[in-house]
Amino acid sequence: MRNYTLEYLFNGEPRRHIFEFEQLQLPVHEAAMHLLQLHFGDAENSLIMPAADATPAEILEQAERVGLTQIKVVDQPG
């Protein structure tokens, strides 16, 4: 397993969250999807989440619309 620290802004405020995944790389658009799930996964309005067939650019655009910006993936092997 690998730990990935995500550094990002949520509504302009710096945030940091650590996820643990088996995958060797975590592209920024996948990180954005995980952050969307973290912050909005329990929301009653499922329209916040991108469509299942959304492109990486569409995922990042959706994240930006709801306040998730400047997403950076920091790999921490573990």
Rank of each mutant, 00 (worst) to 15 (best):
R2Y: 14
R2G: 01
N3I: 15
Y4S: 12
Y4E: 15
T5F: 01
T5S: 10
T5N: 10
T5Y: 02
T5A: 11
T5Q: 15
L6W: 03
L6P: 06
L6N: 11
L6Y: 03
E7A: 11
E7N: 13
L9H: 09
F10N: 12
N11W: 02
G12N: 04
G12E: 06
E13N: 04
P14M: 10
R15Q: 15
R15P: 03
R16H: 09
R16Y: 04
H17M: 09
E20G: 13
F21M: 09
F21S: 06
F21Y: 10
E22F: 11
E22T: 14
E22M: 06
E22N: 08
Q23W: 04
L26F: 13
V28F: 06
E30I: 13
A31Y: 03
L35Q: 06
L36E: 02
L36F: 02
L36V: 08
Q37L: 13
Q37I: 11
L38F: 08
H39D: 08
F40L: 12
G41L: 03
G41R: 09
G41C: 04
D42Q: 05
E44K: 06
E44M: 06
S46V: 06
S46C: 02
L47R: 10
I48N: 05
I48V: 13
I48A: 08
M49Y: 07
M49K: 11
P50I: 11
A51K: 09
A51R: 08
A51S: 07
A54R: 00
A54K: 01
T55S: 09
T55K: 02
P56G: 07
A57E: 15
E58T: 08
E58R: 05
E58D: 04
I59S: 01
L60A: 05
L60P: 03
L60K: 12
E64D: 00
E64I: 00
R65W: 00
R65T: 00
V66M: 05
G67V: 00
L68K: 06
T69E: 15
T69N: 09
T69I: 00
Q70Y: 01
Q70F: 01
I71T: 00
I71H: 02
K72M: 13
K72V: 14
D75L: 14
D75F: 15
D75H: 12
